[in-house]
Every structure is written in structure tokens, then in C-alpha cells.
Design a binder for these strands. Structure first.
Length: 100
DNA sequence: CTAATGACATTTG
DNA sequence: ACAAATGCCATTA
């Protein structure tokens, strides 16, 4: 969609460096908004599926949350990126959170 | 335009 | 600490 919000969401999500992650809340804040759900929606539609590392975006509670391709699959991918995950939760969550 | 939904977050039980 | 309820914004129907 050509809405500014989603555009920003994708742009920011793409800026997340490898080995780091971010939360919906942080992204929403980066957009000067608190539409966490809208961010999640944007990523859910995700017309930039392979372009935007949506798997690097997780919940604020350190949980992975839900993902289209399966949460467990994302966990594996994040683990490969260097993120430590236990029971679907981020271990070094605070250490890997990327803030804009 | 109005209503409902969601890859959420926060507060309350 | 965990589970449920409420509130939030933007998008979709």
C-alpha cells in the first residue's frame, strides 16, 4: 500500500542491522506514533516480503509473537543471526534491541 | 463513511 | 508470575 505509515514502517524495518532486532513499539515511536498494531499490520501485509526483514521485529515483552511463515521458523532465523532465543523468548533481548 | 480486525502493549485479576 | 481484559492506531472490508 502506498500509505505513508506503511512506507515508513518498511523503510525502518529494512534499516535494522543484522544481528539486531526491534519491537513494534520502537518502530511506532520512530514514526512518532504509538500504532504498534498498525506496524504489525503493515508487516503482515508486507508487500516487501523478502526485502524487509520482518523477522527482526518482535514484541516488546521479548516474545517473538506471530509470523506468517511460522514463529518457530523466524526463531531459527534469528538464532542464525546471532540472537539467543529460549522458549520462543529473546534471552539477550535488551542487548539486541536496535533503537532508531 | 462506518464497523471490524490485527505479526501489539499495558493494566488489572 | 501468569491469564484475561482493555485501549490503541492504521488498514481492510
Amino acid at each position: 500500500m502506498n500509505t505513508k505509515f506503511t512506507e515508513q514502517v518498511y523503510n525502518i524495518t529494512k534499516r535494522i542491522p543484522k544481528g539486531k532486532i526491534s519491537t513494534y513499539g520502537e518502530i511506532a515511536k520512530a514514526l512518532n506514533s504509538k500504532a504498534y498494531q498498525a506496524v504489525g499490520h503493515a508487516l503482515h501485509k508486507n508487500p516487501y516480503a523478502p526485502i524487509v526483514p520482518c523477522h527482526r521485529v518482535i514484541n516488546s515483552n521479548g516474545k517473538i509473537g506471530g509470523f506468517a511463515s511460522g514463529t518457530e521458523n523466524k526463531i531459527k532465523l534469528l538464532k542464525k543471526e546471532g540472537i539467543k532465543i529460549k522458549n520462543n523468548k529473546i534471552i539477550n533481548f535488551k542487548k539486541v534491541v536496535f533503537r532508531f
